[in-house]
């Protein structure tokens, strides 16, 4: 039970900051604090992601965001991921910026055999070179599934009657390492790219396709 309390607190804290899209800190202007974004790529499946963000003024620059992504397939509502949080700029020297993302995540996955609903966190650090119209950066992060509720289908329960439904804690995690970049077009539109590899935690078997890619568009308002 202590684990649950601890992880709940961690996630609560993390979502104070939350998740963010690729942010070019140098191109965020005072009068355009909002952004919407659309991403497409491979992220444990061919995924589409839509999201919104809002820059808030604190002692450090923070962009709060929320997004929803789903993999391709006939049933687009059975698998999805919701992320909420933000990106915090911690350090800036000339055009070099170091920032961190702290996320709370909710993932759902359903097949004919099982329905999974999980809570987790996604923490990453980003360091790179930021100009007004473009940026390139390296990122390293860890996506942890902390608590995962499994509910098995009738077929699987008939097949193995002793199979246990319920909360499995934890059920895995993946490190990711990659690069990202963006290019601004005009004063509202930005194109972005992320590409990298994933690596399962500890000595766990890696994902079948241990890569991620993302092409995106950001509209500022």
């Amino acid at each position: 039970m202590k684990n649950l309390i601890r992880t709940t607190i961690i996630i609560m804290l993390s979502t104070v900051f939350g998740f963010a899209q690729n942010i070019n800190w140098q191109s965020l202007e005072e009068d355009k604090s909002g952004l919407v974004y659309l991403n497409f790529g491979y992220d444990f499946g061919m995924s589409t992601q839509v999201g919104i963000g809002h820059k808030i003024e604190t002692f450090l620059p923070i962009v709060l965001t929320a997004d929803y992504s789903f993999p391709a397939g006939k049933n687009i509502a059975d698998d999805f991921k919701i992320r909420l949080g933000g990106q915090l700029q911690l350090f800036e020297y000339k055009n070099f910026v170091f920032s961190t993302k702290l996320l709370g995540t909710f993932k759902r996955h359903e097949t004919d055999l099982v329905r999974m609903a999980s809570f987790g966190s996604d923490f990453s650090a980003i360091a790179g070179f930021y100009k007004a119209k473009w940026h390139v950066a390296a990122e390293v992060g860890f996506d942890k599934t902390i608590s995962n509720n499994l509910k098995h289908s009738k077929f699987l329960r008939d097949n193995y009657p002793e199979i246990k439904d319920g909360w499995y804690i934890p059920t895995g995690g993946n490190w990711y390492y990659g690069v990202q970049g963006s290019k601004t077009f005009g004063n509202r539109l930005e194109g972005s790219i992320r590409i990298g590899v994933t690596n399962a935690e500890k000595k766990d078997e890696n994902a079948l396709l241990p890569y991620y890619t993302q092409l995106g568009l950001v509209w500022r308002y």
């Binding site: 992220d43 444990f44 499946g45 061919m46 993999p71 391709a72 397939g73 006939k74 049933n75 698998d79 991921k81 993932k107 996955h109 097949t111 055999l113 099982v114 999974m116 999980s118 996506d143 599934t145 995962n148 699987l156 059920t171 895995g172 995690g173 993946n174 399962a200 935690e201 500890k202 000595k203 766990d204 078997e205 994902a207 079948l208 396709l209």
Partner: peptide, 29 residues
């Protein structure tokens, strides 16, 4: 872009493991 293919790879997002019990379960799914 098929359901089966994406179901196959999406589970790696929620479950990882190195022990026989976990890996056998993932293979079954």
């Amino acid at each position: 872009f098929g359901e089966a293919t994406n179901d196959f790879v999406y589970q790696d997002h929620l479950i990882t493991g190195s022990d026989h019990n976990t890996l056998d379960y993932k293979l079954a799914l």
